[in-house]
Design a protein around this nucleic acid. Structure first.
Length: 432
RNA sequence: GGAGGGGUGACAGAGCGGCCGAAUGUACCGGUCUUGAAAACCGGCGUGGGCUUGCCCACCGUGGGUUCAAAUCCCACCUCCUCCGCCA
């Protein structure tokens, strides 16, 4: 949520910032007008309420001194003003709700580093990494036996069974089996262990209340992209960013506690309503996937360090797995609603011959903290914290890259040695 | 799922419908005393909002209701604890 005070003080700055994401100036003018209306209604309601309180106090005094007649007069006067106050409050509250709804619908202001542009075509590739790059090796040219899409090799090896997944839950709900399943589990364990030095491991609930979904900015905007359980007022989380961001909601932290860094491995659920029919092969895009998230509550001054650390960890994991990837700086029109700045990591998949998003690191400023009401005490007065998060990493697409990149001529898959401790000492997946 | 008991400021813990934004204690901040510290003593100490900066308004789990007036009474819900039942 944007700072309403900032909008009042420097409307032009806010307008210019949001224009970069395609938000029309008229939206902000509407909000400013509604805010002014709300405040004048509020003043009127508060003035009446103060009168009622004053009169009520005098009723008590009159009663105590035995002046029944005065008490009755004051009571009826107060009653009349009370009715007036009720009507004024209703108007004021209604205007306040409208202000809140308008404010909630607005996205965050992109940071200065965020490149201009309105669609993903305007994202900026920052750099690429591939195994051996440091020692001068050229960008990898993959062998023919690596250029087999994972849905073919996965089915052949018996580690991926999309048909059965679809039978159980519908299409785009994958079913991994045998070593394919174990690989997912290994990746989560490997990641959590790597981050354990600085990030507290959390196993949060998989579902979250509507209010919780609001705090990250997933609601009200992206309701169609999420699975809802209306009977219980719950939503399946699209990322563990949701529960993690709300862990300290409505709390005032001590500045000395910050930054608070946490990591979580959870399933993530996405309806992919806007992407229906796209990337339907294999596990390129699925309704459910496992992901390890890195998250930090921090001061504004710490945000850059936290952002850099999360990005560095995501990159280090990709490098340790020997996968080719690139960094994309998302443009103003492509960053998420709540984000000020986002860098995506895309892994190269030789079988599909495409770059696949496997990580997204974002700085949110105080946008989410304002919604979740997470503050810290500085010089005695509370301020909103900053939130930063990023995936390290999303496994279904890492699974793709591993299965394709490490496919051998004989059709087996020889995985990197770092995973060996998590795969019972083995690194080769072959047909069983 | 059933029965009972709780949810008040950073924490603990009071609070006959009006004098309660809320006693008291602890913690915290400032001061006195002290070579220094501790102790003692004195003072301060919630959050948010509005405007004419001095005042006004809101907040005692959440949402309704009763009343001239609600932390206090009524209803619903959430949540925690104890006991019973069921259960991975």
């Amino acid at each position: 949520m944007l700072d309403l005070v900032l909008l009042r003080k420097s409307p032009d700055e806010v307008k210019a910032g949001l224009a970069r994401r395609g938000v029309p100036t008229s939206d902000l003018d509407e909000l400013i007008a509604k805010d002014e209306e709300h405040r004048s209604l509020l003043q009127e309601a508060e003035r009446l309420r103060a009168t009622v309180r004053e009169l009520s106090k005098r009723v008590g005094e009159a009663r105590k001194s035995g002046d029944t007649k005065a008490a009755e007069e004051l009571t009826s006067e107060s009653r009349a003003i009370g009715d007036e106050e009720r009507r004024a409050s209703e108007k004021s509250d209604a205007a306040g709700d409208e202000v809140r709804a308008l404010l909630l619908a607005l996205p965050n202001i992109p940071s200065d580093e965020t490149p201009d542009g309105l669609s993903e075509d305007d994202n900026v590739e920052m750099r690429r990494w591939w195994p051996g790059m440091d020692t001068g090796a050229p960008f990898p040219s993959f062998e023919e036996y690596q250029k087999v899409p994972h849905w073919e090799s996965g089915e052949a090896l018996g580690i991926l069974d999309l048909e059965t997944g679809a039978k159980i839950a519908g299409s785009m709900f994958p079913l991994y089996r045998g070593d394919g399943s174990r690989l997912i589990r290994a990746l989560s364990a490997y990641a959590l262990d790597r981050h354990a030095d600085a990030y507290e491991e959390i196993r949060p609930p998989t579902f979250a209340l509507t209010e919780t979904m609001m705090s990250t900015g997933h609601l009200p905007k992206s309701a169609d992209d999420m699975y809802e359980i209306p009977r219980d007022g719950l939503w399946a989380i699209p990322t563990s960013e949701v529960p993690l961001t709300s862990m300290k909601s409505n709390q005032i932290l001590e500045e000395a506690e910050l930054p608070i860094k946490m990591t979580a491995a959870t399933a993530c659920f996405r309806r992919e309503a806007g992407a229906a029919g796209r990337d339907t092969r294999g596990v390129l895009r699925t309704h459910e996937f496992d992901k390890v998230e890195l998250f930090a509550y921090c001061t504004p001054e710490q945000a850059q360090e936290c952002f850099d650390d999360i990005l560095a960890r995501a990159e280090a994991m990709l490098q340790s797995l020997g996968l080719t990837y690139r960094l994309l700086s998302l443009c103003a029109g492509d960053i998420g609603t709540s984000s000020k700045r986002t860098i995506d990591l895309e892994v190269f998949s030789p079988g599909v011959d495409r770059w696949l998003e496997v990580s997204s690191t974002s700085w949110f400023g105080d946008f989410q903290a304002r919604r979740a009401n997470v503050r810290f005490r500085r010089n005695g007065s509370p301020k909103f914290v900053n939130t930063v998060n990023g995936s390290a990493l999303a496994w279904s697409r890492i699974w793709i890259a591993l299965v394709e990149t490490y496919r051998q001529m004989d059709g087996t898959i020889a995985l990197p040695a770092v995973l060996s401790p998590y795969l019972g000492g083995r690194t080769v997946i072959s047909k069983r």
